[in-house]
Amino acid sequence: MIRAASESDADGIREVSKHLGYAELSPEQSFLNLVAILSSPNDHIYVTERNGSIIGWLHLFYAKRLASEGFHEIGGLVVSPKYRGQGIGRALVEYALDNNDGEIRVRCNAQRVESHKFYEAIGFRCSKAQHVFQIRAQ
């Protein structure tokens, strides 16, 4: 079952998020992030549930641009390892496609070749390669 996320999904989303490979957030910070995203009119979080537990989620946000048309972007997609290869990730992406208008983009780390294959199998096409630069403001 795929549905929009709610605040009560915070622990389940946090548990699944451990499989993203990023630094783990505290339960409090994870909850605050979820509340902020849920209150944004430009963001959507969809979850997949099985037997009352969250087993996957997709974060979609609308990106406005000053000099070009806006678009939706997948900000994150993760499925618990136990459930991978069962079409859950594809179903989440298709749900996002069915419930939003316009272009949808996704950025993938260059080393995540399996992710590239996953999105290409759904119909996404690579439109450009780029570098990401970052700096922490004071």
Rank of each mutant, 00 (worst) to 15 (best):
M1N: 01
M1F: 07
M1W: 08
A4S: 15
S8P: 00
S8N: 10
D9C: 00
D9V: 02
A10R: 02
G12A: 03
I13F: 12
R14W: 14
R14P: 08
V16R: 00
V16S: 01
V16Y: 04
V16D: 03
S17A: 14
K18Q: 12
L20K: 04
L20A: 07
L20H: 11
L20I: 08
A23M: 14
A23I: 12
E24S: 11
P27T: 02
P27H: 00
E28A: 02
S30F: 04
F31Y: 15
L32V: 04
V35T: 02
V35P: 04
V35D: 03
S39C: 03
S39H: 15
D43W: 10
I45C: 00
V47L: 13
T48S: 14
E49G: 05
E49I: 07
R50I: 12
R50M: 13
R50N: 08
G52E: 06
S53D: 15
I54N: 01
W57S: 04
L58S: 04
L58N: 05
L60R: 02
F61S: 10
A63T: 13
A63N: 13
L66G: 00
L66I: 10
L66D: 09
A67Y: 14
S68P: 10
S68G: 08
E69Y: 02
E69A: 15
G70P: 03
H72P: 07
H72C: 08
H72R: 01
E73H: 05
E73G: 09
I74F: 05
G76S: 06
G76Y: 11
G76W: 13
L77V: 06
L77N: 06
V78K: 00
K82G: 03
Y83N: 04
I88W: 00
R90L: 07
A91G: 04
L92S: 00
E94T: 10
A96H: 00
L97Y: 03
D98S: 15
N99T: 14
N99K: 03
N100F: 03
D101G: 13
D101K: 15
E103L: 13
E103D: 13
I104F: 02
R105W: 06
N109W: 13
N109H: 14
N109Q: 12
A110P: 09
Q111A: 12
Q111R: 14
R112L: 05
R112E: 05
V113N: 08
V113E: 08
V113L: 10
V113F: 03
E114Q: 08
E114R: 06
E114A: 12
S115C: 03
K117G: 15
K117R: 15
Y119A: 06
E120I: 08
A121E: 09
I122K: 05
I122G: 08
I122F: 00
G123H: 05
F124C: 08
R125A: 07
S127H: 10
S127A: 09
K128I: 07
A129L: 10
Q130I: 14
H131V: 15
H131W: 13
H131Y: 11
V132W: 02
V132G: 08
V132L: 11
V132K: 06
F133Q: 04
F133V: 07
I135G: 07
I135Q: 06
R136D: 09
R136N: 11
A137W: 12
A137G: 12
Q138N: 08
